[in-house]
Simulated scan of single mutants.
Amino acid sequence: MAEADETEKPHYHGHRARLRARFLESGGAGIPDYEILELILFGVFRNGDVKPLAKALIAECGSLGAVLSAPAERLAKVPGCGEAVIAALKVTREAGLRLLKEDAMQRPAISNWQALLDYCRAALQHEGIEQFRILFLDRKNQIIADEAQQRGTVDHTPVYPREVVKRA
């Protein structure tokens, strides 16, 4: 009878525990994007196999970063991706951006060009429209604020110097 119970278990039985353990052991190194998405989705779906949804999201958007940055409307087109999934993905993206921003704000932005580029790349690389952003620095060249001054189209953003100076 015990053998019958074992054969009836789904193929993904124990997958969550194994994936969590692999992630914690490796610190995330070598874990594919779809498995990172699975780990995020574990918080939304208490039970069941989330691998098909994670792979569908990657297939729709192209990469983990693109999934996290995709508009809610695009994510909602993927079967199984409801409001809770979209919220979890958006919270994950926001947490990452805040981490990068905090890291950039704790170091001189100008003297550490790579940290500034990493922050800007993370904040802007998956945006569907161009933005003109203003980084406000203190006299130690640390970021005080980062604001999107203007938003444009896919390939054009109008910039009005008067508005930039007024905001500064």
Score class of each variant (00 low, 15 high):
M1I: 14
M1S: 15
A2E: 08
T7A: 15
H11Q: 07
H11L: 06
H13C: 09
H15P: 02
A17E: 15
L19G: 06
L19I: 04
A21S: 04
R22W: 02
G27F: 02
G30H: 08
G30K: 08
G30S: 06
D33I: 01
I36E: 14
I36F: 10
L37T: 08
F42R: 04
F45G: 09
K51R: 13
P52V: 02
A54T: 01
A54L: 00
K55P: 05
C61G: 02
L64E: 10
L64N: 05
A66F: 01
V67G: 03
V67H: 02
L68N: 02
A70N: 05
P71R: 14
A72H: 10
L75H: 12
L75D: 13
K77T: 14
V78E: 00
V78M: 01
V78P: 00
G80T: 08
G82T: 05
E83Q: 11
A84Y: 04
V85N: 11
I86M: 06
I86L: 05
L89F: 12
R93D: 14
E94Q: 06
L99A: 15
L100C: 11
Q106T: 14
R107P: 03
I110Y: 09
I110Q: 11
I110V: 14
L116K: 01
D118C: 10
C120Y: 13
R121Q: 13
Q125G: 10
E127N: 07
I134C: 12
L135C: 12
L137M: 11
D138Q: 07
D138L: 06
A148P: 07
V154T: 12
V154L: 10
R162E: 15
R162M: 13
K166I: 00
A168T: 11
A168D: 09
